[in-house]
Computed example of a mutant assay.
Amino acid sequence: MAAVPITADVGGLPPEFGLIGRHFRPLAGPAALDLEDDAAVLAPPPGRELVMAADTMVSGVHYLPDDPAEGVGQKLLRVNLSDLAAMAAEPLGYLLAVSAPADTPDTWFAGFAAGLAADQAEFGLSLLGGDTTSTPGPITLSLTIIGHVAPGQAVRRRGARPGDEVWVTGTIGDGALGLAVSLGKLADPSGFLRGRYCVPSPRLGLPLAGRVSAAIDVSDGLLQDLGHLCRLSGCGAEVEAASVPMSEAARVAGPGWLAQRLGGGDDYELLLAVPEGRGAALAEACAARGVPLTRIGRFVAGPGAVRVLGEDGQPLAIGRHGWSHF
């Protein structure tokens, strides 16, 4: 894990090498070469294609500065694993870049690494390398995930067709409501919503290849991410608001949070285009893996617009469809 020196110790190694040795070398797998070199040497599994994605999290933007460091490490890894899940890929390893102020407590790095270690054990991957740098702030974390898939079997965002049904895993809106809880705007006696915001659940291992026309993970908001599928596929979509699955905690929050649930993001559930008549079998296969799957609408002919329908079948006015990165 090559590093840009922060300050050099007289007659010794720069202090970031100690940081790497204490917290990140224990996370490294064989391909990382003990984090002694500038790059890893990785052989993909025989007969598989590599799938790669990258995400960045900035303190105060993607997580709150006082969020537990362990959860920050888990969220960083999991949002990247969610990108693999959407393409029906399996994880192999990851590269990590950490930019932090020089006065960041060592205990923060210890907690951050502990979160990564817990999820490496759960999801079966290891650290391959990366970089550490000093910054005036805020803490900025970037992770590149590497996975693998059978040749030609990666599920794309492009491919939905009019008549396909819109299905989603899990429940929608918990991440947005969890952020509201974190900001003191909503009560959460059980802690469920806050937990869903801080540590999402990537839907790895679902049998999507050959069963779905297109897929994306819900990171920026259900409606906005559905719009991405529509735009790339040259069609529109209709969502039945009453069919969008919600957790019991979200139900308690009440109907006034509908717009936030549909447009808030941070759910990291999978949004799927499924050919008509194939949804029930896919839902059964997902349920066998402990993941509920719900039909919430369909793709329609026309420009890439997404409409939300009320129980009377009439369009609802939803002002914000999702999160913008700029």
Rank of each mutant, 00 (worst) to 15 (best):
residue 154 A to K: 04
residue 216 I to W: 06
residue 248 E to S: 03
residue 272 L to Y: 03
residue 212 V to M: 04
residue 173 G to I: 04
residue 170 G to D: 08
residue 207 P to D: 13
residue 269 E to W: 02
residue 266 D to F: 15
residue 257 W to V: 01
residue 222 L to C: 09
residue 268 Y to V: 10
residue 209 A to F: 13
residue 212 V to P: 12
residue 213 S to L: 04
residue 256 G to S: 08
residue 155 V to K: 05
residue 150 A to Y: 06
residue 178 G to H: 12
residue 208 L to V: 06
residue 236 G to N: 13
residue 173 G to T: 03
residue 182 S to F: 03
residue 261 R to Q: 09
residue 197 Y to R: 09
residue 214 A to Q: 07
residue 201 S to D: 14
residue 228 H to K: 14
residue 253 A to I: 05
residue 248 E to M: 02
residue 193 L to G: 09
residue 183 L to G: 03
residue 204 L to Q: 08
residue 146 I to L: 13
residue 218 V to I: 15
residue 214 A to H: 12
residue 229 L to T: 04
residue 245 P to I: 05
residue 210 G to P: 02
residue 267 D to Q: 11
residue 159 G to E: 08
residue 267 D to A: 11
residue 226 L to K: 03
residue 163 G to L: 02
residue 148 H to W: 10
residue 250 A to P: 01
residue 180 A to Q: 11
residue 217 D to R: 12
residue 147 G to L: 03
residue 267 D to M: 11
residue 148 H to Q: 10
residue 181 V to R: 04
residue 243 S to F: 02
residue 211 R to F: 00
residue 231 R to P: 06
residue 165 E to Y: 02
residue 243 S to P: 00
residue 185 K to V: 01
residue 204 L to M: 06
residue 255 P to A: 12
residue 214 A to L: 08
residue 172 I to L: 09
residue 217 D to T: 08
residue 145 I to E: 09
residue 154 A to Y: 05
residue 167 W to V: 06
residue 236 G to H: 07
residue 232 L to E: 14
residue 218 V to A: 14
residue 170 G to I: 01
residue 256 G to W: 09
residue 143 L to I: 00
residue 151 P to Y: 14
residue 218 V to R: 12
residue 157 R to A: 12
residue 259 A to S: 15
residue 240 E to F: 14
residue 169 T to L: 11
residue 180 A to F: 07
residue 160 A to Y: 04
residue 239 V to W: 02
residue 177 L to T: 02
residue 218 V to T: 13
residue 201 S to I: 12
residue 212 V to Q: 10
residue 179 L to G: 00
residue 262 L to K: 08
residue 257 W to P: 01
residue 235 C to Y: 06
residue 157 R to D: 00
residue 269 E to C: 12
residue 172 I to V: 15
residue 242 A to Q: 15
residue 239 V to M: 01
residue 166 V to E: 03
residue 210 G to N: 11
residue 207 P to H: 10
residue 145 I to W: 01
residue 246 M to V: 10
residue 162 P to L: 05
residue 171 T to F: 15
residue 247 S to M: 00
residue 160 A to P: 12
residue 271 L to P: 07
residue 224 Q to R: 14
residue 217 D to E: 15
residue 161 R to G: 01
residue 265 G to M: 07
residue 207 P to F: 03
residue 151 P to E: 12
residue 256 G to L: 12
residue 155 V to M: 02
residue 186 L to S: 02
residue 223 L to M: 08
residue 247 S to F: 04
residue 258 L to A: 13
residue 256 G to C: 13
residue 230 C to P: 14
residue 217 D to Y: 03
residue 227 G to T: 05
residue 229 L to A: 03
residue 255 P to C: 07
residue 194 R to H: 11
residue 183 L to S: 12
residue 196 R to I: 01
residue 242 A to I: 06
residue 164 D to E: 08
residue 148 H to L: 00
residue 259 A to D: 15
residue 183 L to W: 14
residue 145 I to S: 08
residue 143 L to H: 05
residue 156 R to A: 14
residue 146 I to D: 00
residue 218 V to G: 05
residue 163 G to P: 02
residue 231 R to L: 15
residue 228 H to Y: 11
residue 172 I to A: 10
residue 169 T to D: 11
residue 159 G to C: 06
residue 210 G to K: 05
residue 238 E to A: 10
residue 173 G to M: 03
residue 178 G to P: 03
residue 167 W to G: 00
residue 170 G to H: 07
residue 158 R to S: 09
residue 206 L to G: 08
residue 227 G to D: 07
residue 168 V to P: 14
residue 241 A to P: 00
residue 153 Q to L: 08
residue 220 D to M: 01
residue 162 P to S: 08
residue 176 A to S: 07
